[in-house]
Nucleic acid binder design. Structure first.
Lengths: 195, 195
DNA sequence: ACCTCGGCTTGACCCAGGTTAAGGCGGAGG
DNA sequence: CCTCCGCCTTAACCTGGGTCAAGCCGAGGT
């Protein structure tokens, strides 16, 4: 077993026999990415995903009229991929970009589907993963409905302290749904208020 | 089989043996709700969910400082319940309220878990359901990131034409993340623009 | 040491939406 | 028939964030 930590992480979600995990490791390959390199680009088929071994990624959606918005940041131990598009068998509408020199353990969807046929644990794990990501999205929905931009900012740093210093401000703004200008103003406002 | 239409609906997501469906029907019970009646109230254990047979519901979250926001509307054939809380085994933070005289087919989570132990189809169905709801939430996230309130409104009616005349304006506003005053203004603005 | 460039800040101006408060309007009940 | 109530609209005023444009600052490259 090359990645016991990852095994632990997933086995915490649902019982996962070590020998099944080894089969998954066997079909995975490692990929190294430079800063700014794309793990996935818009238009690519969404037939692969990865687990971040080292580094930070941003999932960017380029909207029709060119606005960039950020769906998520993903750091060590987290999954990257165009999940929604994969489920719908659509080409990716998302770019997934390394914000640091990173490496990733890459799986082909096809290979995982083969494993699913061999053992139910994969079905269960896929369910848990879907449920987990649902909960994340629902929290985010709640944030947009109830919270001001400033409150979203505070909450963001409370929930993602490990991203401090690793993601540029403008990307945080694009994640919060505001411009970098507005974010800068919010920050200076708070600075004044507390000094 | 009492509810062949529902069976069709779920069987479309994943192969579902009719005899398994009959087992589910056997543990379900029907519930009738008056207009304004709550299927679930905040603080209730999230140990049950339902399928709407007739009527429309709104899932309301009352935030810390008393603001009501609406997570979703649910009409015939759709699921109601505090899904996120159920997954996390938390008490419901959501109220689910009938907007019309409605009836619902109610399941206890516990009973469904028992069925899961009997046949993998339920695991698979649960996965599909989780994935489907994930996609819904991700679309909504995208809407908040890319679209103005007015664009969200237009998209809302495109995607939910069957709710026309069945949900009060103020609730649509609370779903879009704006006040009913703002919604009214947006509508009169468009009226002027196109006349 | 200098220049450049990317990323952050600041200012001026505008507009969408929030807030508060005052109507309007239609349906249910006296 | 009138009244009351729920729901929607309108108006006046305020504020947060968008947009555009001009700096600023620090890290690399030459």
């Amino acid at each position: 077993m090359r990645f016991p930590k990852l095994f632990e992480r997933f086995a915490a979600l649902t019982p996962l026999p070590p020998e099944e995990w080894e089969k998954a490791e066997a079909v995975a390959r490692e990929q190294v990415l430079a800063k700014r390199e794309l793990f996935l680009r818009p238009g690519d088929p969404a037939d692969r995903f990865g687990v971040v071994l080292q580094g930070v990624f941003r999932a960017v959606r380029v909207s029709a009229r060119g606005g960039e918005s950020i769906k998520a940041f993903r750091a060590e131990g987290e999954l990257i991929g165009a999940y929604a598009e994969m489920l719908q068998r659509l080409p990716s509408m998302t770019a997934i970009e390394a914000l640091e020199p990173s490496h990733v353990l890459v799986f082909q969807t096809r290979d995982l589907q083969a494993l699913e046929r061999g053992h139910v644990c994969w079905e269960r794990l896929a369910r848990r993963v879907a449920e987990y990501h649902f909960i994340l999205k629902e929290r985010r929905e709640q944030d947009f409905l109830d919270l001001s931009a400033e409150e979203r900012l505070v909450k963001f740093w409370e929930e993602h302290p490990h991203l401090k210093g690793r993601v540029p401000q403008r990307d945080v703004a694009a994640y919060l749904g505001i411009t970098e200008v507005a974010l800068s103003r919010i920050m200076s406002r708070r600075r004044k208020r507390t000094e």
